[in-house]
Amino acid sequence: MKNSEDILWVTRVLLWNDERAFRRLMEKYLPQVRRYFLVQTMGNQATSDDLTQETFIKAWQGIGGFRGLSSFSTWLYRIAFNTFMNHTRSAAWQTTPIDDERTAYEIADEAPPPRRQEEALQNAICRLNEKERHCITLFYLEEMSIKEIQKITGYPAGSIKAYLSRGRNNLEKILKSDERER
């Protein structure tokens, strides 16, 4: 039902170039896509905003390429994933290590006041490696299935399971060591 509604909007965009229909799709998926980038960029709001913009503009331009073989969200996340991969490959990208005292969310201008537990989790997820972070974000935060993650990232199902398990263990270790330090 959820997907058929998306397909209806996509059809309207395709046939009548309907910007309102695309707006509906954006309203639905923009927060999720932006949150995905926030995790990947370690809380960098400006970069996340830029990447979100790029993703939706690419989706608008290439919506004719959506064949309905997967859900619209999977197709959109695939664009987001590729956009992020291109971004990391570009020379401009440099991973800035997270300051232990201040999380990336705190650095941002519109930062909600995070509690200690949430702050620790933000820090911990930023310390995972890229593949683990992608899989953890898509599986836990965006609640996608292994099959969907496979379609988005192109990683084999076995590897995704391994990244998830390793990511979970690493998160636990980081959180525990942080707790001890405090």
Partner: peptide, 19 residues
């Protein structure tokens, strides 16, 4: 994770208009 990365409706709205 959802609590650690909460939605920012105002910023999202601004971004939507920009896009």
């Amino acid at each position: 994770l959802k609590k650690a990365f909460p939605a920012q409706p105002e910023r999202e709205k601004q971004l939507l208009v920009q896009i």
